[in-house]
Design a protein around this nucleic acid. Structure first.
Lengths: 346, 346
DNA sequence: TCACAGAATGAACACGTTTTCATTTCTCGT
DNA sequence: ACGAGAAATGAAAACGTGTTCATTCTGTGA
């Protein structure tokens, strides 16, 4: 044994492992990459020595030559929004299992896109990018990420051709909101709701636009008058204030459809604690997302759900498929929504 | 102009920028690194051309030679826990401003450490690592991260020498919980609380151990009987069930101190909706963290706060100081806590 | 035994930067 | 006009890996 270089100063390298195992450095590389030809017992020996030396291939070096960083960029306006944090959580778990790591970036909270951020992110060379900032055009994202193919979470507008339209240039996850919203409106209609209000999310958000328009169309199809709209921005506080204004300044409502669950919580608290109204007896409330908090007893919210696990699985499928077929045309996945009935309606 | 190589296939490289600007590749590198000597007008020209070509230095290549990945690893058991998600959010914002990116890793939810995860993470070469898994010994973390110096969030146990003790080998953020807990107990004592219960967090969590022991000692110092302990794991559901057991199986309490705010929400909902008790009239509740939801009207929770911004600033200071002084002895920062009084006490 | 296919192996190259070092150019005081 | 020190510049080395390609080894069928 060459005990002279026993001092494992800093990080162990493939060279050191190779020296100790009496093999070439290339063999070490092969030992860590499956689907390469290497005698099994040799691979075993190398891996054993690697573990002793606390060696792991350097991903920066690996990325440099292979063009794969194994990083997935995630752009969020607000990590602690409940829905976002739950998606990040599930996504990180799923990606980790596939050998990827989640790289987090924060952008402006008004859901506008930030070109400087894209350039910044590009420096880290993510293999793929998932943007929660839905209003950004996919080709803008693509222009800034030369290597990575962005994944576009798409909320098709109802009544347009968007639902069917193919997009050969980008990978897309379509979220169809019509079914869940229709079930929600049907329920409200069954309870005889007359004045239905929509508490919006951030105006620039594509998810909000799509939900509002879909609600309008569903209500029209069912012969209901258009909803009263109160402006929020997905936050508890904005929903709280908007609800108060709706009843103090405006004419109130007997049912409120919130753009997301957190907003619905603000609506419920404003109704109960500020306006002294009962939910669901005086006003019925429905949310959107079905986050973990929605079953908490203080709210016990009826809400339109789209399954998180299903969504994450779809995203991971898109990522992996794209990495295995870099030049294939755009892949698509589609997700549906459904109503979860709890205590805030009837 | 050498129009032959006009096709900007794939990603732009420093070489291309250099060719167009009629300078050497080294000059391009210097243009992107401040504190290097380069004629201002030349730097300006290079940056302009770089922008035209959509060029950003490749961080993988940069990391390889400079030894700085500009990645900060964050290990969390659960991203969507409210407190964690808020810290991740604030941390990401702060790090982004300093040119770093947050690399997210999930570990087991029982707060035990996962050596396999550490080895996995090491491959990404983070410059620094912040572990929310407080029970891991800092030298274990250090052994797995040869280059990065881990930052240890330390909850000193009261009555031991830990508060004063220096640790020259690791960077440390001390969180002193005694002041806030003392204020909380004083408040409860003032309202004549007799039976005080502690709803614990995950047993292996250092934060929980420290909070429980500090509470014990504060109560003893004030001549109060030791707290009844109900076992939870920081989650809403566990707190909800433990509270029910406390009153149905055990002898109840007239004040409950929860290990975190989310647990306190579970306590409140169990008291109100399951046990039909009033908060604060029948039972007083105090939480720990002061997360954003704590001021929501349905809970309006009195809680022990330690300031998130202050904490994040301290962490970033530790990270930067360490990177600028790789061989310096361990740095320390200290944070205090205080009570925020809202509606769940008196 | 021989020829041959396929597996196993290692030398050399490539990836895109930063850093070191030696050289050239500029600036300023005399 | 001169010299000295500072600023500016580029050639070459280095970082740690994956990949290509040519070579050697192994086992099989004739």
């Amino acid at each position: 044994m060459t005990d002279t270089e026993q001092a494992p100063r800093g990080r162990a390298t493939a060279e050191m492992v190779a020296a100790r195992a009496q093999v070439s450095r290339v063999a070490v590389s092969r030992a860590f990459n499956p689907h390469t030809s290497l005698k099994p017992e040799k691979r075993e020996l190398i891996l054993k020595i690697a573990q002793e030396l606390n060696y792991t291939p350097d991903r920066a070096a690996r990325a440099l030559v292979s063009g794969r960083s194994h990083l997935v960029g995630v752009i969020v306006p607000d990590v602690c929004s409940h829905w976002e944090s739950q998606e990040i959580d599930a996504l990180t778990t799923a990606l980790q299992a596939e050998g990827f790591a989640t790289l987090l970036f924060k952008t402006r909270t008004d859901y506008s896109m930030d070109e400087q951020l894209l350039a910044y992110m590009r420096g880290f060379n993510p293999d793929s990018v998932i943007a929660f900032v839905e209003n950004v055009k996919p080709h803008t994202l693509a222009r800034f990420l030369d290597r990575a193919v962005p994944i576009y979470v798409h909320y098709p507008l109802p009544g347009t051709s968007e639902e069917a339209e193919d997009d050969p240039l980008h990978d897309r996850l379509n979220v169809l909101q019509r079914d869940g919203i229709d079930q929600a409106v049907a329920l409200l209609q069954g309870f005889g709701a007359r004045r239905i209000a929509y508490l919006s999310g951030a105006e620039k958000s594509r998810a909000n636009t799509s939900r509002e328009r879909t609600l309008r169309q569903v209500m029209a199809d069912r012969g209901l008058a258009p909803p009263v709209v109160a402006r929020g921005d997905f936050s508890y506080d904005s929903a709280y204030q908007a609800t108060i204004d709706l009843f103090r300044v405006g004419d109130g409502a007997d049912a409120i459809f919130a753009a997301n669950d957190v907003g619905a919580f603000g609506v419920i608290d404003a109704l109960r604690h500020e306006l002294k109204l009962r939910v669901p007896e005086d006003v019925k409330v429905i949310g959107f997302d079905d986050i973990a908090q929605s079953h908490w007893k203080s709210y016990n919210l009826t809400t339109v759900k789209f399954d998180l696990d299903e969504r994450v699985r779809a995203l991971v499928r898109l990522i992996l498929r794209r990495l295995n077929n870099p030049d294939a045309p755009g892949f698509q996945e589609t997700l549906n929504t459904r109503l979860v009935v709890r205590g805030t309606v009837g």
